[in-house]
Design a binder for these strands. Structure first.
Lengths: 230, 230
DNA sequence: GGCTACTGCGAACGACGATCGCAGTTGTGG
DNA sequence: CCACAACTGCGATCGTCGTTCGCAGTAGCC
């Protein structure tokens, strides 16, 4: 029941043919989430956008959580694995990391922490397979490889979140604006947090670093640190 | 209004003295979340556990999201910064990482992704201050330091999540049990995902690795990779 | 051609977050 | 000393949500 992503009871042929399928429902949910965030994905809204009644969805999806699982699996199907296996393992992993970041950019609601509480779907297994294949070329133990992939994915999420400004490690944009006339500014300037203040100042005055270059650099260093090489 | 963690309108003295304070409400929310997960933290449940009516909470907290902000800030106050600054920067950062992991262990609902969509609270700023102070001893630019701290925190979350088995990068425990007789097993054994199958097999047969040693090793390697040294 | 297993769905339930206004309480100013 | 103002907790209620139940209709099977 919890693994319902994988399988559905097969049709006996009896009765009217279904009006939709799980793929279309998931796609409708993804469209709503892309437009107005994860909170906009209500059963009624999805049903509306499909021209159906709210109760009809439950013929295809057991619960809203399962719909979210299908949505995550759906966007995992957008990942491309072209050009892998030609270069060295580091290039392959970096390409996979870029692909994962593109997925976060296209569907920022993935950053809301849904993936963490959703079982690994079929398309996520595809990603894992390719990532482990790349690690195998680095000739490390499987446990080390799984570890490295997990770290890489967490890393991509954190970096993309920072890039999208949804929550910088410093302050949110809107907050940074408010902070000047708020208690936050007092705390920072009071000297309780000199390093934070310095970091905020340097970030304000510093030249804008290229996010793509930063991404590649950090991911590469972490992967080399974990898998050795070079 | 969004930065209400930092400040509240001061009392004029007029009227009856409040029956509670934001700290007690946050503590009640933390207790509920610790016991039954984040979903159990409803305004009514928190009010009940305080012996108050649901509507009364809104005298202290503007919205449920603000209550969650207070809860996160509350548990951030449990972090200890003792013994820092004595050794080298790597030891300090590792100690902070261990402290962060302890926080996740004590309050697993932090892994549900709340932190990501909550503005940086006062106690989180304290943590950031200590972490940046440690990075300063490594003599790196502030931007690199912020980056490294963000990566470290994402890393701690990912590792702790894996350790708690809430979602291993492989499969959930309950799922791994079901998978044997489910479609998942078919996929793995069908040969579509040989590396995933190998990793699962090696994990099943492999000796149990010490999570603490693994944690220290991974965090150390990543930090060295990001901040240089050694 | 009836039986059966399906379909979509109207109506409803319970729980939730949030609001409004009222009764009670406390300090303050005249 | 007392009326007013500024607070308090909170009962009642609203709108929305996820989900369930049962019914009417439909298509294949024996």
């Amino acid at each position: 029941m919890a693994v319902s992503i994988w399988l559905r009871p097969e049709r006996t042929g009896r009765g009217p043919s279904p009006a939709f399928d799980r793929g279309r429902i998931a796609a409708a949910g993804v469209a709503l989430a892309d437009a107005d965030g994860l909170a906009a994905v209500t059963m009624r809204a999805v049903a509306d956008s499909l021209g159906a009644a709210p109760a009809s969805l439950y013929r295809y999806v057991a619960t809203r959580d399962e719909l979210l699982e299908l949505m995550v699996d759906q966007v995992n199907g957008e990942v491309s694995y072209d050009g892998l296996g030609a270069g060295d393992w580091l290039e392959d992993l970096l390409a996979l990391a870029r692909e994962a970041r593109e997925r976060y950019r296209a569907h920022p609601w993935l950053l809301d922490g849904i993936e963490a509480k959703i079982p690994l779907g079929p398309r996520a297994t595809d990603f894992l397979e390719h990532a482990l294949a790349a690690c195998a070329a680095a000739s490390v133990e499987p446990e080390t490889a799984i570890e490295a992939v997990a770290v890489m994915l967490a890393l991509v999420g954190a970096l993309t979140r920072a890039e999208l400004g949804r929550r910088a490690i410093g302050l949110t944009d809107s907050e940074r604006r408010q902070a000047k006339s708020e208690y936050a500014a007092q705390i920072v300037k009071a000297g309780d947090h000199p390093h934070v203040a310095a970091a905020l100042a340097s970030r304000a005055t510093g030249k804008a670093t290229d996010p793509d270059a930063q991404f590649d650099r950090v991911v590469t260093r972490v992967l080399i640190g974990l898998l050795g090489g070079r």
